[in-house]
Nucleic acid binder design. Structure first.
Lengths: 191, 191
DNA sequence: CCATCCTTTCAGTAACTACTGAAAGGATAC
DNA sequence: GTATCCTTTCAGTAGTTACTGAAAGGATGG
């Protein structure tokens, strides 16, 4: 009897790897989408991250079934964002792309961007609203009106929340380079 | 000389209040959008939060210039979500809506939902991928292939990140304000 | 200088999401 | 019962975002 052959597992390891990677890519794309990130961009990033080896534009196009134009634009956007990098191989004209390898670094880049583009403006707006309806602006008696007071309270509540959230983001962003692993350790120990 | 009149401020306090509220509503809508939340829904919620008084469907329609259908569906979705509530006034057939007043409670509801719908599935998928390419599934020699090892490492990195993020969310969901404040304290103490 | 190989751009289109308005569906009052 | 008042639903449409493919734009090598 020949038992030599690697048993009828019926699965080709290379195929199995690819399937697992595709599963990850698909899920990552879905998640990105619900957080306001273009699905294709999230998928490209997931691909570069999970295969952990530089891919050229054609690799990406084939694997995700997207057009050259789409690939080019999305790759460029990811580079601008800073979570993937361009690279070259000697004697090969093509450009290759690879993902940052540290998940924490990646997310701290994303967090920094989001803070700057969304949270900071909200905080600024809240403060502006507060100024618009303070005593100086609308007079003492008007400021005592019920509806003004209610809105004031709500603005304060929201301000406090945004401030605290900002601080957490700040911690992540600030500590990214100086070893986010420390942040991780601290949090894991504490909770 | 008549200095009695409340000085030519040129601003009507009621108008000023409304303008400030509108500013907040607009900004909140924009932010919601970039986080994957329908702009109108975010605006409705912002309106109910900031005026801090129950509003009926027509109030919402007029203030945000949206159709009855849109208002009805969006209000229902916000109710389902749990961040606004329906209420009634005696002797008035209309339904009124009001926002939760505690920002922390609101966001912990949102966080719980996001965790359940997006983060948990991602974690599950990561684990599934790991199982698909472990030694048992693809054999020892195949498991030692470079590409398999690389993907394994990446899955581990991502798993760690999602686990820690999950813990922060958990902290927030369980204890809303005090939970997040604690995260901030822990981080501040450590750095 | 031209040929080759690769990348970028963008007008046109496809796909998707959000919104409207009118009709149908309750509920309450009389 | 039916009149009134309000809410919900949903087919149709508007508006937005994402994608394609082909043409133009480099860069490198001979």
């Amino acid at each position: 009897m020949l038992l030599a052959a690697p048993a009828p597992t019926a699965v080709d390891p290379a195929q199995q790897l690819r399937t697992a990677q595709d599963l990850f890519i698909g899920r990552w794309g879905e998640m990105g989408q619900t957080w306001g990130i273009n699905r294709t961009m999230a998928e490209i990033h997931a691909l570069l991250y999970i295969v952990a080896q530089p891919q050229c534009t054609d690799d990406v196009m084939e694997r995700l079934h997207i057009s050259r134009g789409n690939a080019s634009m999305s790759l460029r956007a990811l580079c601008d964002w800073g979570i993937i990098r361009r690279m070259h191989k000697r004697g090969d004209r093509k450009e290759y792309f690879e993902s940052l390898s540290d998940v924490w670094e990646m997310f701290s880049i994303i967090a920094a961007e989001r803070k700057r583009r969304e949270m900071d403006p909200v905080l600024e707006t809240i403060k502006q609203c507060q100024r618009m309806i303070d005593e100086k602006s609308i007079g003492k008696s008007a400021a005592n009106q019920l509806d003004v007071q209610l809105t004031r309270q709500r603005l304060m509540g929201m301000e406090e929340f945004v401030e605290v959230t900002n601080k957490i983001f700040q911690q992540f962003i600030g500590n990214a380079k100086s070893g986010l692993t420390r942040v991780v350790k601290v949090l894991l120990r504490a909770f």
